[in-house]
Amino acid sequence: MAIDKTLELFDCGHRACAGCGHALGTRLVLKATGRDVIVVSPTGCLEVFSTPYPETAWRVPWIHSLFENAAAVASGVEVALKRQKRSEKVVVVGGDGATFDIGVLCLSGAFERGHDFTYICMDNEAYMNTGIQRSGATPYDASTTTSPAGARSFGNRRPKKDMPQIMAAHGAPYVATTSVAYPMDLMQKVERAINTEGPCYVQVHSPCCTGWGFEGSQTIAIGKLAVETGLWPVFEMNNGQVTKVKKIMRKPVEEYLKQQKRFRHLFKPIRQEAEIAKIQAIADANASRYGLDLKPRK
């Protein structure tokens, strides 16, 4: 089924920041799903900026219940649809806090039960709706309001939780990562997910200009750099096996880091070589694990 790229189901007039990755990503998600869909969203930026009563940006049926129960609500929606012999696909679109942290119980339960729905995590790597607090998705050394850089701190002390592998370990038939900086890749993966029976997981890198500290005009550029440095590997997994990887000519992580305020403390007042090297090592490990590097031409 071809994606109708002209279809607009996420309306303008919502309250997202200019340059918001979530707004862009959600618009692309709905182009890929088409109209025959029911969307479930947890509490978060997306929910708040898209549905200030009595207005809504959603031109498809949409439900928000709580922060941590989107996957459980989606379970009920999916079962009720099947019982009524209805055709709508069920898609969750939520943030990383709802996915990696507070909603992980409901998410794990729903994937273990094998419900037929697609869970899309719009990952902006912190709790942005409440004011940029760290989550399990926050990368190593990122400064947030609850993991601030300081005299005794380089920011977030832990690496990002590996959610795609966790979801694959549930037996999910389709798991993928993508980025709002690669619209065709994003839409194609969402389309594959919704047309794969069973619980599917798509993790979308969604740069947040407000939370990460960059100009709203640079969202796509930042998103591309995350991929090009190997800090955001773009891949697909079918039945637990990595089947497709976006190959890159890798750039040093510094090019990505230095453009964001959340990593500014690694460069000013003095350059923290050891910390930058640790982040480079994360990218190197990703490259090795997923085979990201294009082989140089001989």
Partner: peptide
């Protein structure tokens, strides 16, 4: 003639009921 969703917690039990009810089914 019903689907029994065997959830991992009471929290999900009522959340699943909520989703199914909103989709138009008695729960």
């Amino acid at each position: 003639e019903a689907d029994y969703i065997t959830v991992e917690s009471e929290f999900s039990a009522l959340s699943a009921c909520l989703g199914a009810s909103a989709t138009g089914v008695r729960v």
